[in-house]
C-alpha cells in the first residue's frame, strides 16, 4: 500500500495522450538534457519495446524531443517539438532497437553536445509519468529525480574517492547510495553518488578541479511544481 497525496490523484497537468508514453517520455528527455549540460547538437533516440511499437500514435517521439529542447511535460508547444528543434538546428533521429531485458518503455539517448562530447543515457518510463534513468555512459545508475546525483569518471588510483567524499563531508552533504565501476583497460573508474540534498555549484567545481578527475556530471531534482 503506497502513500498517495491529493496531487498524485488529481494531476499532473500534462500534454496527452499517455502519462507513461508522453509525459514520462518528456521527463526522460528533460533529464537527459540536464545531464549533458543542455547544449546538444545531435541526438539519436533508440526506442525499445512498447516505445518502439506505439511511439508515433502516443507522440512519444515528440515528447522525447520536447524534453531534449527544454520543454516541460505540460508545455503546450510539445506537439510542435519537431518544428522547434528544426529551428534550433538540432539533428535528431528515431530508431527502433532491442536494448535487451529492460523495461518495455525504454529509450537510449545517444547525444553529441555542441562541445563535441558524446553521451549515452538510458531511461525507462515506469508508469504514471514516473521515470528512472538506468545507465549513464555505461555506468548502471538509478536516478528517479527524487535525490540529486553526481557521476564521475576519474583515474583508478587511491585517494580519488576519499577526496570527493571529504569535499561533500565539508559541506555536510550525506551520501545515500554509491557505486564504483572500474575499467581495467583504460585505467579509469566511474562513480555514481546519490546525495541527500543538492550541492552548491561551487562544490561541483571543486570536485571537477580535484586531481585525477576526467569528467563530472550532475543531475538535479526536478523543480517542485508548486
Amino acid at each position: 500500500m503506497g502513500d498517495y497525496g491529493v496531487f498524485d490523484i488529481i494531476g499532473p497537468v500534462m500534454v496527452g495522450p499517455s502519462s507513461s508514453h508522453t509525459a514520462g517520455a518528456a521527463r526522460l528527455g528533460e533529464m537527459a538534457r540536464s545531464l549533458c549540460g543542455g547544449k546538444i547538437s545531435e541526438v539519436t533516440f533508440e526506442l525499445h519495446g512498447s516505445f518502439a511499437q506505439t511511439y508515433q500514435g502516443h507522440g512519444t517521439d515528440k515528447a522525447l524531443l520536447a524534453g531534449i529542447i527544454g520543454l516541460r511535460p505540460a508545455d503546450e508547444r510539445l506537439p510542435r517539438s519537431f518544428e522547434l528543434a528544426d529551428q534550433l538546428g538540432l539533428r535528431y533521429r528515431f530508431v527502433p532497437a532491442d536494448l535487451g531485458s529492460v523495461h518495455p518503455n525504454t529509450v537510449r539517448f545517444l547525444i553529441v553536445t555542441e562541445a563535441g562530447e558524446h553521451y549515452s543515457i538510458t531511461g525507462s518510463s515506469v508508469g504514471g509519468g514516473n521515470v528512472v534513468i538506468t545507465d549513464i555512459n555505461g555506468i548502471p545508475v538509478s536516478f528517479t529525480g527524487e535525490s540529486p546525483i553526481i557521476v564521475t569518471r576519474h583515474k583508478d588510483t587511491p585517494g580519488v574517492i576519499s577526496n570527493i567524499t571529504a569535499l561533500l563531508y565539508n559541506e555536510r552533504v550525506n551520501i545515500g547510495n554509491m557505486r564504483v565501476n572500474r575499467h581495467k583497460t583504460s585505467g579509469t573508474a566511474d562513480m555514481y553518488l546519490e546525495l541527500d540534498k543538492e550541492i552548491d555549484p561551487s562544490v561541483l567545481e571543486k570536485i571537477r578541479a580535484l586531481p585525477d578527475m576526467e569528467n563530472v556530471l550532475e543531475l538535479r531534482c526536478q523543480p517542485d511544481e508548486f
Binding site: V15, G16, S18, G128
Partner: peptide, 17 residues
C-alpha cells in the same frame, strides 16, 4: 483533446481524464 496531444489533467489517469 488528450488523444490529440492537448493539455489535460490526469484524473486519476490520462486515459480517464
Amino acid at each position: 483533446y488528450n488523444a490529440a496531444m492537448g493539455r489535460i489533467v490526469a484524473c486519476p489517469t490520462a486515459g480517464s481524464c
